[in-house]
């Protein structure tokens, strides 16, 4: 701050102190308020609209997949391809070997099937599917406990992906690298469907509602080790 500036400031303050510019005050307050609102507006736009766009990145699946179509052709529903192994573990997304069981040759001839054959079957490569509902590494999730023991429907957590005709865009958080399906579709954390978000609170809420092993000494809810590893 230069000395001259300070001097003028002091002068103006002195005059202000004398109440000489009293008449100016209301209009000043108005302009100041407008600036406040302006700042508020800009930042809210940035925070609610721009920020989520920057935070989430989109990734393409290797090729498209029609769940509805496949459901029509299998006998055992979801479990035809997403099945339990003998040791109780869940197979998750099918491996190449499984797909070839039916797709030993090109059937439908759709663009995606051709990609599948030319790029993966021909080279004996596993398809690097992006898993929407993959829980992070710190979580132990037992499909057996939910689907078999608790007899839950796949829809509860996975929504109607089984009836979809094409795969949705895979979005992931740039910082945390979580899938948006885990992290929550809505930036405000609002939830319409049970499958909109799969964060810890969602798991614990359901466990609480159903009184699943609420035996933690610390929280009187589920002990941490029920889901964490």
């Amino acid at each position: 701050m230069s000395a001259s500036e300070e001097k003028t400031k002091e002068v103006s303050e002195e005059t202000a102190g004398k109440g000489a510019d009293k008449s100016k005050e209301p209009s000043n307050a108005g302009i100041i308020f407008i600036f406040f609102v302006l700042g508020l507006g800009v930042s809210i736009m940035v925070g609610w609209i721009l920020f989520p766009k920057v935070l989430y990145s989109q990734k393409e699946q290797p090729f498209d997949f029609n769940h509805e179509n496949h459901m029509l052709m299998v006998d055992n529903g979801c479990q035809s391809c997403h099945f339990f192994r003998e040791d109780g573990t869940f197979s998750g997304a099918p491996k190449l070997e499984q797909c070839i069981d039916c797709h030993y040759d090109i059937h439908g001839g759709s663009e995606d099937e051709i990609i599948f054959h030319e790029q993966y079957v021909a080279n004996n490569l596993e398809v690097p599917w992006l898993i929407y509902y993959k829980q992070p590494n710190c979580v132990f999730f037992s499909h057996a406990a939910h689907v078999i023991n608790a007899e839950m429907d796949c829809r509860t957590c996975h929504g109607d992906i089984g009836e979809s005709t094409s795969l949705p865009v895979y979005e992931y958080n740039r910082l945390s690298s979580y899938s948006r399906n885990i992290w929550g579709q809505n930036i405000a954390g609002l939830k319409r469907n049970t499958w909109d978000r799969m964060k810890m609170s969602d798991c614990s809420d359901c466990h609480q509602r159903n009184n699943v092993n609420q035996n933690s000494v610390q929280t009187l809810k589920g002990p941490c080790f029920v889901c964490h590893k």
Partner: peptide, 11 residues
């Protein structure tokens, strides 16, 4: 323990 329980559930 978790894996043993999964196996038990499937059985």
């Amino acid at each position: 323990y978790q894996l043993a329980r999964e196996r038990a559930f499937v059985q």
